[in-house]
Computed example of a mutant assay.
Amino acid sequence: MTFTEHEGSVDQLCWHKTNPELLCTAGGDKTVRIWDVRQIKCCSTINTKGENINIRWSPDGKTIAVGNKEDLVTFIDTRTGQKIVEKQFNYEVNEIGWNNSGNLFFITNGQGAVPIFQYPELQVLHIAKGHCGTCICIDFDPTGKHFAVGSADASVSIWLVESFVCVRMIPRLSWPVRALHFSHDGNLLAAASEDLFIDISEVSTGARVIDISVETPTFTVAWHPKRYILAYACDDKEIYDRKKDVGTLKLFGFSS
């Protein structure tokens, strides 16, 4: 399938939490689009105020949050396609997302912190401070117990969702952490960066389980929903040796 209706770059996509036929995309053409893969077409287009770079679907599937390059976050009602609210921030907004219950909304920012908001009130409940560099990415454990944050300081922090307490730091990478993903059971965490390996950690201890060698920077990783199989894609920019195996999606699996 190829979806071609965006008129600019597509920087991020997100699947509906419970409906495997629906996904949404954040476009540099100042739109958010919802796609039905059964019909291979866009079923809703929402115009926004800026070039969109981050997008997340709420756990109940009723809301999409999208962040743009001007640090504006827009919340969209997926049933009507209408904007619920827009919130402008006075700091750099990076990845965004809800906890598994959908009552908390998280933002990674350029101040080395993660503001946590009550949702839908969008009142600041807590600010998780654990990094000395920009917080870039965030992911939530499928069991609802932990969330992890990746930072420009090349470290990963693991936090308890209930208490917002940082329980461990993972400092093994040398470059800014660009992507994180918990395994289906919440036991493992994959972290990727410009390092030439993907770090796989045991969540309960932070200990390294294995590192996966790569030949170019890795900016996206995703675990299989039921098995210890990790999908990842590496950078394929022209500055790298084209003879290397780049520009491909790879899978890595191992037994428990």
Results as ranks from 00 to 15, higher is better:
196 L>P: 01
87 K>I: 14
159 W>R: 08
209 V>R: 15
34 I>E: 13
250 K>Q: 11
167 V>C: 14
235 D>V: 02
170 I>V: 12
8 G>V: 04
249 L>G: 03
108 T>F: 02
146 H>P: 01
142 P>I: 10
176 P>F: 01
213 S>A: 08
57 W>H: 11
33 R>G: 08
128 A>G: 10
89 F>K: 05
100 N>W: 09
224 H>Y: 02
220 T>S: 10
101 S>A: 14
27 G>V: 05
83 K>E: 15
186 G>C: 02
234 C>A: 08
104 L>N: 07
15 W>H: 05
66 V>R: 03
58 S>H: 06
133 G>Y: 05
231 A>E: 00
96 I>Y: 04
249 L>S: 03
60 D>C: 13
226 K>S: 15
114 V>Q: 05
173 L>I: 00
171 P>G: 11
247 G>S: 09
88 Q>P: 01
183 S>R: 03
210 I>F: 06
80 T>W: 07
58 S>L: 09
5 E>T: 14
88 Q>C: 05
41 K>C: 13
19 N>T: 11
206 G>S: 07
158 I>W: 10
94 N>W: 10
231 A>W: 00
26 A>N: 04
187 N>P: 00
195 D>K: 12
206 G>K: 10
162 E>A: 14
190 A>M: 04
126 H>W: 08
100 N>K: 15
111 Q>D: 14
252 F>L: 00
169 M>W: 14
51 E>T: 13
44 S>T: 12
162 E>Q: 13
23 L>K: 02
240 Y>N: 06
189 L>I: 09
21 E>K: 13
16 H>F: 08
219 F>E: 08
19 N>H: 09
92 E>W: 10
20 P>N: 10
28 G>L: 06
141 D>K: 02
21 E>I: 00
20 P>Q: 07
129 K>T: 14
119 Y>S: 05
75 F>M: 11
153 D>M: 03
39 Q>P: 02
239 I>W: 11
150 G>W: 02
64 I>M: 10
84 I>W: 04
140 F>M: 05
106 F>W: 08
77 D>G: 08
110 G>T: 06
142 P>Y: 04
122 L>W: 14
200 I>E: 05
103 N>M: 06
160 L>Y: 15
233 A>I: 13
149 V>E: 01
88 Q>I: 05
70 E>V: 11
191 A>N: 10
147 F>G: 03
120 P>N: 11
177 V>P: 00
111 Q>V: 08
90 N>Q: 14
13 L>E: 04
226 K>H: 14
221 V>M: 04
255 S>N: 12
69 K>D: 12
136 I>G: 01
183 S>V: 02
4 T>F: 11
151 S>C: 10
101 S>T: 14
108 T>S: 07
14 C>A: 15
6 H>L: 10
180 L>A: 00
159 W>I: 03
216 T>W: 09
163 S>A: 10
227 R>T: 02
216 T>R: 07
203 V>P: 10
232 Y>A: 03
179 A>P: 00
95 E>L: 05
56 R>M: 05
205 T>V: 06
126 H>L: 02
252 F>K: 04
186 G>H: 01
232 Y>R: 07
185 D>C: 02
136 I>Q: 11
84 I>K: 15
